[in-house]
Design a protein around this nucleic acid. Structure first.
Length: 604
DNA sequence: GACTGAAGCACC
DNA sequence: AAACGGTGCTTCAGTC
């Protein structure tokens, strides 16, 4: 046994490192005397889906705020066995981002996440319920180091955060590669590993008390945990990809990028991605550039803008080439190469779904399938993603989710009536303002976002007078919406928070009280989708679910049953808020996700 | 090489 | 009185 020690604000943390089989009984004794423990794993990387193709678990750590154990799982079956036994035995586990550890334990140690998930407490979920703001939003943050810095001790946080970087430097390698390379019994590594369960455990004790009583009473702690287990199962299932299709698009886009880069070169631009080079080139051709980016620290007046709007306005062949070259490169890397590089041995890709991420509580999807930002105009990107063999793709989306949510809670009679009697809300707004439907629609959404006339001016490309008139008309048509927004803003001004209807406390930035309405709607709508995921899970739909995308859930259904299953799923998803139904509509396509969009487009 | 801020673009 | 909410990814450019 090797014993290490660390001090957090003067309090000792004892770290026992199991070195040989003779040390195991002491660990077993500790486990037998504890019902709950902080838990963490160290692995060779983040690609848990590649267990058997190089991904390994290296260490497993257990402990509480004062004493932890590091088990060298990599050393062989007896160490694996003792970890498996401990995991079976403990009644509760505490982990930060425990979803990752669930994947690791399942893939490497064979314990199904269905067994461990129900007894796991995740400090990242508690932290979000306490304060959802990241460090950049002047909040505590959501990462372990950030939370330790905010809630426990700054010095500890910095040492833990810096340690793997320091080890990487010592090994003369990168932070990305160090996880697989570091010597298993490297003292600094053991210290880093051993501290993690202690910190998670301490955070759990602190954060649990800080979760607002109102959130607890509404059962949000358990609810968010159950939800994260559903999204963990979706991550595990993954999404089958059409490798040939993605590879063809990559080749196509590479050729496209090369072609337009060559054109840019003939105008003296080596790198179309460099705005500096572009500005220089255009000014050399006598083009007058006026649009500026927003003011920042280093550029109080903003810099000359070089976005799509500017480029398509200059009317020069270089601009056209730059737009096309940039787009081809970005699309290839972001959509197709990400999917190809992330696939497992069965050609499935596994997104990282953070079920509770945004400061409004919206989910985020990142990694190999950044699905929330997939181009939606046609199926070009989404064709990459396939329903399973013998299955078809199906998308079920909520209709007018956020606007219905707004109508339901503002109780504005015109807006409620529009939805209850199936009228066209965007047209009603347009008619009231004397503009086309498209601008009416913009005004409706702008209200959800808290935008003013200046934003409408920019977005709809109308003059100030028109923009003001449209918003005035909106306010006259739906007086209940303005009143509701004012009520939430006043509450935010008084308390600093807006509470969602689901009992979630969301901080609002000082002076930005108008955002309270958006947070209420965005957070509440997310909870409607979250509720749908839980309902679908309970009804046995999880094996068919692929991804949630804000107001939509994507499925892979067996072809023969697709019609029935999609209707059943849609009925489960639908939910009346304050008596107003948020309907769900199923669209069935062919094999690929993209085929749904193609079918929808061909209808017009 | 790692990190950060900013710009730009993809979405709901 | 005045105000476009929330994300993720890639790249550049500057700093340490």
């Amino acid at each position: 046994m090797r014993n290490l020690s660390y001090r957090i604000k003067g309090q000792p943390v004892l770290i026992h490192v199991v070195e040989s089989e003779q040390d195991i009984p002491q660990f077993e004794d500790w486990i037998s005397r504890h019902r709950i423990a902080g838990f963490d794993t160290e692995t060779t990387g983040l690609n848990w889906w590649d267990a058997g193709r190089g991904f390994r678990i290296r260490l497993a750590q257990f402990g509480n705020g004062a004493e932890t154990w590091v088990i060298p799982v990599e050393r062989g079956p007896s160490f694996r066995a003792v970890v498996v036994e401990a995991l079976h035995r403990l009644e509760w586990l505490v982990a930060h981002n425990g979803t990752f550890d669930l994947h690791v334990v399942e893939a490497c140690l064979g314990i199904p996440m269905e067994e461990l998930a129900p007894k796991m407490w995740d400090t990242s979920l508690l932290a979000h319920l306490v304060d959802p703001r990241g460090v950049k939003e002047k909040g505590p943050g959501l990462k372990l180091e950030e939370l330790v810095k905010f809630y426990i001790d700054q010095q500890t946080a910095e040492e833990v955060k810096g340690s793997m970087t320091a080890i990487a430097k010592r090994y003369k390698t990168t932070k990305e590669k160090i996880w697989a390379l570091v010597e298993l019994f490297d003292e600094e590594y053991l210290l880093y590993a051993g501290m993690d369960p202690a910190l998670a455990y301490r955070l759990f004790q602190l954060l649990y008390r800080l979760v607002p009583i109102r959130s607890k009473e509404r059962g949000l702690i358990g609810w968010e945990h159950r939800l994260s287990h559903v999204t963990a199962k979706l991550e595990r299932t993954g999404y089958l990809i059409d490798v040939g299709y993605a590879e063809r698009r990559c080749e196509e886009l590479t050729a496209e990028e090369e072609k337009w880069k060559a054109v840019a070169k003939t105008f003296g631009v080596e790198n179309p991605n460099s705005n500096q080079q572009l500005i220089e080139a255009f000014q050399g051709f006598g083009v007058k550039l006026t649009k500026r980016t927003k003011p920042s620290k280093n550029h109080p007046n903003g810099q000359l803008a070089m976005d799509d709007d500017v480029l398509s306005g200059v009317g020069h062949p270089l601009a056209d080439a730059v737009i096309k070259a940039k787009k081809a490169g970005k699309w290839r890397k972001t959509w197709f190469e990400r999917a190809l590089n992330g696939r497992d041995s069965d050609d499935r890709v596994h997104a990282s779904i953070n079920s509770l991420q945004a400061r409004t509580s919206r989910m985020s999807i990142s990694g190999s399938i950044p699905a929330q930002t997939f181009p939606s105009g046609d199926g070009y990107v989404r064709h990459t993603f396939l329903a399973d063999e013998g299955h078809v793709s199906c998308s079920i989306d909520f209709g007018n989710m956020e606007l219905r949510y707004l109508a339901a809670f503002s109780r504005d009679s015109t807006m409620l009536d529009a939805f209850l009697s199936g009228k066209d809300l965007h047209q009603i707004t347009a008619d009231a303002a004397g503009v086309v439907r498209k601008i009416g629609k913009m005004a409706n959404f702008l209200t959800v976002y808290g935008g003013g006339w200046a934003a409408l001016m920019e977005q709809a490309n109308v003059d100030e007078e028109t923009a003001r008139r449209v918003l005035d008309a909106f306010n006259e048509t739906y007086p209940g919406v303005g009143a509701f927004g004012k009520k939430l803003a006043a509450e935010a001004r008084k308390t600093g928070y807006v509470w969602t209807a689901t009992g979630r406390r969301l901080p609002v930035d000082p002076g930005k009280w108008f955002r309270a309405l958006n947070y209420f709607i965005q957070g509440g709508s997310r909870d409607v989708t979250a509720r749908a995921l839980l309902k679908l899970d309970a009804a046995g739909f999880t094996p068919y679910m692929r991804l949630p995308v804000h107001d939509e859930i994507v499925f892979s259904f067996p072809e023969r049953e697709a019609a029935e299953l999609s209707q059943e799923a849609a009925r489960l998803m639908e939910f009346p808020v304050q008596g107003l139904l948020i309907p769900a509509d199923a669209e069935i396509g062919g094999r690929s996700w993209g085929s749904i969009l193609d079918l929808a487009n061909s209808k017009h």
